[in-house]
């Protein structure tokens, strides 16, 4: 704990610089940036839902440059094959041998754009990499680069011809972020900045702002009081004891809640988590792991409304 406490100041400062770097380019979405950083520190993947044109690619690109990592993007389409994601083996005529062509998953940050447009087979290939952090090609197991993080996006409109992600696979995303339009003032700033540029803005940082692997290791060391762990579990369990939801969150949700709470604590420069850290991430962690009851859905209630109601029922600890 002492070592961690010593490093915390420096680490927190680095994380804040990274945050500032991303916020500088992605204007008007500070909460989204913070949540993506939390997911990154927790070593998880993120599902982002929002209409096109809100800067999802820019977010990943800027983040990749901030951590000095590689960034790749796959546009999911109905004809995308698993090999297009993971890679494939091909015969090289010149060398007269089979060579391995690695797919776009061999990167640090992968933007899987409109993941629900590809068929289940292709989705499964990516989701397997997300879970195992490795790809098997031609009998050879290849590990993906560390850190590895997938930011998958979904478009809430234009659902025609999409393949909805199964609940079991949704569970593999540590959080789901709903990205919304920026405020009017921020939108004016974005429009002014971008209209003044004749070439695309350079998003690369001068140097890597943080060693994200070290930060992830430090994050795992954050202290968890038993009462706070119990609170996180109670929040997840509450989703299983209600008629408002057809399907509640599983134990992975409790794990994700604690992991994310640790990341929040690290971003705040603390060496322990509080119930506030857990509660602040509860919506993002739980919203894609539960299914609304049909009657609640007919009533027009949003999953976040139901989760807020359930959170009100769980007593906060006073250790």
């Amino acid at each position: 704990m002492n070592n961690l406490a010593t490093n915390l100041v420096a680490l927190s400062a680095s994380l804040n610089s990274l945050k500032a770097h991303v916020n500088k380019h992605l204007i008007g979405q500070p909460k989204v940036v913070e949540q993506v950083l939390v997911a990154m520190l927790a070593g998880g993947h993120v599902l982002i839902e929002g209409v096109p044109g809100l800067g999802k690619t820019l977010l990943v690109q800027t983040l990749a440059s901030g951590i000095g990592g590689k960034f790749k993007r796959i546009q999911f389409t109905p004809d995308l094959m698993p090999g297009d994601v993971t890679g494939h083996v091909m015969f090289d005529m010149a060398q007269s041998k089979f060579i391995l062509k690695q797919g776009p998953v061999f990167t640090n940050l992968l933007l899987a754009d409109e993941i629900n447009r590809a068929p289940a087979k292709t989705q499964a290939a990516l989701l397997e990499v997300m879970q195992e952090y490795q790809v098997t090609l031609d009998g050879r197991t290849l590990e993906v680069k560390k850190p590895f993080m997938v930011l998958a996006t979904q478009n809430p409109i234009e659902q025609e011809g999409t393949y909805v992600l199964p609940e079991a696979q949704l569970d593999r995303f540590v959080i789901k972020i709903n990205i919304d339009y920026p405020s009017a003032a921020d939108e004016i700033l974005i429009a002014t900045q971008h209209s003044a540029q004749s070439t695309p803005i350079d998003k690369t940082a001068q140097e890597s702002l943080i060693d994200i692997t070290t930060a992830q290791a430090q994050c795992a060391q954050i202290d968890v009081d038993p009462s706070v762990a119990e609170y996180a579990v109670n929040l997840a369990r509450e989703t299983r004891n209600t008629t408002l939801l057809r399907h509640g969150a599983g134990p992975r949700a409790s794990i994700a809640l604690l992991k994310c709470a640790k990341a929040v604590a690290l971003l705040n420069g603390e060496h322990f988590i509080t119930p506030d850290d857990v509660k602040s991430m509860a919506l993002a962690v739980l919203r894609h792991r539960v299914i609304l009851a049909p009657e609640v859905e007919i009533d027009g209630l949003h999953v976040d409304d139901v989760l807020r109601t359930l959170m009100e029922k769980v007593d906060a600890p006073r250790s």
């Binding site: 509080t274 506030d276 509660k279 959170m311 009100e312 769980v314 007593d315 906060a316």
Partner: peptide, 9 residues
């Protein structure tokens, strides 16, 4: 205050 309120709330 409610029982569900955390310290920050």
């Amino acid at each position: 205050f409610k029982s569900s309120h955390t310290e920050a709330e």
